[in-house]
Computed example of a mutant assay.
Amino acid sequence: MNAHIFELIGTKTIEMTPKGKLIIIGGAINTGSFTETQFGLPQNMNFFERGILKRITDESSKNTASRFEIITTASLIPEKVGEEYIKAFAQLDVHDVGVLNIISREQANAVENCERIQAADVIVFTGGDQLRLSSIFGGTTIHQIMLEKYHNEEIVIAGTSAGAAASSKNMIYQGSSKDALLKGEVKITGGLGFIDGVIVDTHFVQRGRIGRLLYAAASNPGILGIGLGEDTGLYISNGNMMQAIGSGMVILVDGRLMNDTNLTDVAMGQPVSIKNMVVHVMCEGDIYDLVTHTLTIHHSKSIGVIS
């Protein structure tokens, strides 16, 4: 179903395309997720996603006059992260920026916070621990407002690192890279559900997380695995058209043509075999259609060869 919703009218089922736009980013901020042991802000935070932040602004309904809400719930250093986002957007002449550090489900149901989300043109989820996002927001009033706005309004919802991982209906929340292809190592739960039919992993190339996506796709071959490199993201429009943005790579793992796996035969902690998994690599400008499952590579003008 991907990110589309369906409405029953009489005996007909009509597919409803989301009006909102989704931008998911691989990250590059160390803010203390489950795999990180040292906290702090790297030197490149001012700002690793400068180009991507501009794309977020450009895609928003009111451009630089849009109301931005930065949700720092996933981070263990929310004040610092919030300040850096405010500074980064200010460099893009965006000044109507608020920071929401919601740390409890009670706050996620609070009227004043719901009103802020209702008024937002852009919502940005920062990095950190994606399990905090799903456990604090899942099923709350704010979560419902965000879903309704995404499907019915021209809102931009963006997430970096944990914020990107939590954007899909299914979410990886734990699993070491080196042991990812051992049965039971990769842990999956429900995410925030802005997009269905995919599962997202972040810091992908830098942390060697291909095994996590291979395992996720083998356990549910109908779900497309998306691995986002740092300073790299996907701009998703109409709920199904994914365009690569940023300087790095997006890795897609498609299990629909998988021939065989021993996943159900081996004991917990044992290696998993996978036969015939399809892998694509996307770079800036490439487009993947989640409906037709086709990749269109963007060919820039030939630079020429120096002999």
Rank of each mutant, 00 (worst) to 15 (best):
G40W: 11
A28H: 05
T296Y: 07
L147P: 02
A244N: 09
S167P: 05
V250A: 00
P42W: 03
I236V: 12
V279F: 09
S302P: 11
G269M: 08
G211P: 04
I210W: 01
H4D: 10
A244G: 12
A180G: 02
N259M: 04
F194T: 01
A164K: 02
T73R: 10
C283W: 02
L76C: 13
M282H: 08
G128Q: 06
L147G: 11
A218V: 14
E59D: 06
L8M: 15
G208V: 02
T264M: 06
G211R: 02
G26R: 10
N30A: 12
T57F: 03
F89R: 07
T232I: 01
G98I: 06
F39M: 13
Y288H: 04
S219V: 09
F48M: 10
N240D: 10
S247N: 07
N276I: 06
G193P: 06
T296C: 07
I23T: 13
I145T: 14
Y173H: 14
G40K: 04
I23D: 05
N170L: 12
Q38F: 10
G20E: 04
I117C: 06
Y235N: 01
L252K: 00
I86E: 09
A162E: 11
N276A: 12
G193Y: 01
S60M: 03
I226P: 00
Y288K: 04
D196M: 05
T189H: 07
